[in-house]
Design a protein around this nucleic acid. Sequence first.
RNA 1: GCCGAAGUGGCGGAAUUGGCAGACGCGCGGGAUUCAAAAUCCCGUUCUGGCAACAGAGUGUGGGUUCGAUUCCCACCUUCGGCACCA
Length: 885
Amino acid sequence: MNFIGRIFFTSRLIMKVYDFLEIEKKWQQYWDEHKTFKVPDETSKPKYYVLDMFPYPSGAGLHVGHPEGYTATDIICRYKRMKGFNVLHPMGWDAFGLPAERYAMRTGTHPRVTTQKNIDNFRRQIKSLGFSYDWDREIDTTDPGYYKWTQWIFLQLFKKGLAYLHESPVNFCPTCRTVLANEEVYSGRCDQGHEVIRKPMRQWMLRITAYADRLMNDLDEVDWPESIKKLQRDWIGRSEGAEVDFLISPDDQIRAWGKGCEVEAWKSNRRTSKWPESPESYTLRIYTTRPDTLYGATYMVLSPEHPLVEKIVTPERRQAVLDYCAQARNKSDLERTELSKEKTGEFTGAYAVNPVNGKPIPIWVADYVLISYGTGAIMAVPAHDQRDWEFATKFNLPIIQVIEGGEIGSQAYEGDGRLINSESPVSTSINGLNVSDAKKKITAWLEEHGIGKTAVKYKLRDWLFSRQRYWGEPFPILFDEQGNPTPVDESELPVALPELADFQPAKTGESPLANAEDWLIVKRDGRTYRRDTNTMPQWAGSCWYYLRYLDPKNNNAAWDPAEEKYWMPVDLYVGGAEHAVLHLLYARFWHKVLFDLGLVSTKEPFKKLFNQGMILSFAYKDSRGAYVNFNDIDFSGDKPKSKTTGEVLVESIEKMSKSLGNVINPDDVVAEYGADTLRLYEMAMGPLQATKPWNTRDLSGVHRFLHRVWRMIIDVDSGELHSSIQDVEPGEDELRLLHKTIKKVGDDIEGMNFNTAISAMIIFVNEMLNKPVKSKSTMEKFVQILSPFAPHISEELWRKLGHTDTLAYEAWPKYDQALAEDASVEVPVQVNGKVRSRLVVPADVDEETLKQLALADERVKESIGDKQVRKVIIAKRRLVNLVIG
RNA sequence: GCCGAAGUGGCGGAAUUGGCAGACGCGCGGGAUUCAAAAUCCCGUUCUGGCAACAGAGUGUGGGUUCGAUUCCCACCUUCGGCACCA
């Protein structure tokens, strides 16, 4: 270091500039030691429960996306505390999951060890940002003291008949050796990108479909973004239509079952017996949303898995049909999706009789009909359903138009219109009606004759709840020698994960738990049982964690009902939109079950939901299209260049990802700029819900703001309060600015418009910074409103202003509406919509005065010239527009 | 293909019920301070023309409603997110 440099270095030490590293360390320690944010045990104050979606503690550590939502909720919490609320703001870990298990399979390190390490790192990182969590309520889904209660809730589901075993083809990833729910398969691949196949297995299912209606209807009661509600409604996918029975033609019946039933005899029998719960063996039940098109049905389709296929197929078609079904069964989801453009199918040789006109129509089998929806069988109306139209066109099946409109030659017509070709001596006529009336009339006829019934169906399927993994909650279930499930006694909970040395799945395809022999076999009352070797999916722990926070250390119950009554529902839930459907739907489902059991007092768990947007990052590609890591880029010139080749790189905006080399680590940002700057920057970037790019360059803007805040209050030479700050009444300008800022910041926090709140505070500081006299009370109030955003610097300044206690519980400053408005306003005067002059007038000026002032203005007069003023439009305090002509 | 969100300066973004487009920040240009630099401060910064006063254009595109449209209506284009044969 040269002489000059040494002087500079020394002067920096002497100057008391904003030293964020020291300040942040000091206050984080203070909050920790004083347990500043421990929720007080009192119920007299109004409560406010703010929940962050708890993270999966990955090995990669915190991502700048995490603190975005956490900062927003922290601002709200700190604000609400100052507003007199008793605030619950907890944090925890959704810590079961595959990465730790994969790591264990590779290295033999127990997932608990990896998980603990990652949690410690996440906690350190989160704490370094100064969030006001009550750390005494920290939870961890992998803690036996936690998953004991996850298992307990499962037992309640089981006892209520909402959990059942089901053997069916499931989505299986051979690489991960695990089963996936439908919604965990994306275009035929698992989340690791491996191809998923279908495999029959005995699995736990949760009967979420029993709650479909309530999950749909109760969305009306919550304050969620409409787009998220719509996603959930579409996912539940309620549709109204009719089930209709078609008699399989007598010849085909005789072949399949050795007896025949005449159409008219069947119909007459149905008329008296009415609609049966399940159809006779020789009847094909279909579901349709378009019973009005019944006369246009020209063929039937069974899904390849439909049990009737095998029964009705004719000997000459048998080989082809069974081959087709086998092929469909073995197809992975990927193949099914990829081949979806071209329709395939086989004719079974059998016929069904259309109940409304007695005509026989061929029964086909095709994989465009899904076994899991409706009845797994349809009537095909090619004239009015595009999928049926494509199929009929390919296989030369007849197309009968029954609704006027469209161009049936080129595509199906799915719109409304007048019914045609729809009458028959054996039933009723719906000719001439519109679609909706035709539906009503034909459904009434079907119901009267016991042949059909209105029906409601959902896209929502029951929830596949088993995984063949180690690192999850074991099922508290024992199987007897016959394979019947018996619940473990509640007193034996938790069923803890056994210690294992090897985490590879069992050779049978079962989870690694099947290898834990000592654990696996248990004796009860002299009988031998085998434990369930499955574990629960990662969603299980997150389905109820918001309830455990209420009473996290309770060993006798999942939570205390009194705590639940006081705190629930969650007032504000903030997290990423990627959980819009699954997590939120599953948690709502469990919550409703708990509600029915009388264990919670609200129908819905999350009153208000807010989705933060994703933070993207710039990425740089060279001419070959390869991404270049930030570390290898020279940003010093006007264009980014590769450090190695000097080549100018092409910029794009992408998701942050290791492979693109564009990940921002919050630790680096905190070290260079401090937590307060990071918090402020994340909030100043733009609206919370928007997707927006990270730009490290922009950090300096808010960082400089904090430096100015510091210099506004502190004399950097002495480190003490600046001499301009005096114990005096503020002047009018200062008072107006202060009240305006208090109002704006408070309103913006309530509306979650943090970016504009910050901008208002910047304006305040820019205005006040160099004032020779500043009222101490003004400075104190400013520090208070700044504190939710930048709590460390605010606590430090609060102390410098002479206070000895934390400012976290100081009352939020009040504003006077009259002072929050400007005394005079500048009103633009337009002539034919163009601004020609501006008037400075008192804010309460009346319209007539304003009009006269405008007309008297020299520049306005000039613009009007000799033209006539036809109309004067006055928007009070906003504008005057003179229409001339 | 269907559904949803969004298109505003060089960049992130701001704009009450339809009422001054571009707040605030970044970047950039100029200046002060400095032997010099960093930091800091001041001024300017939508585009076009002009020394300037000022004039004209301007919120994805094209229309419409209105005294007045970033805002409301219609059609289209682009980007991002979700779903994907659900009968």
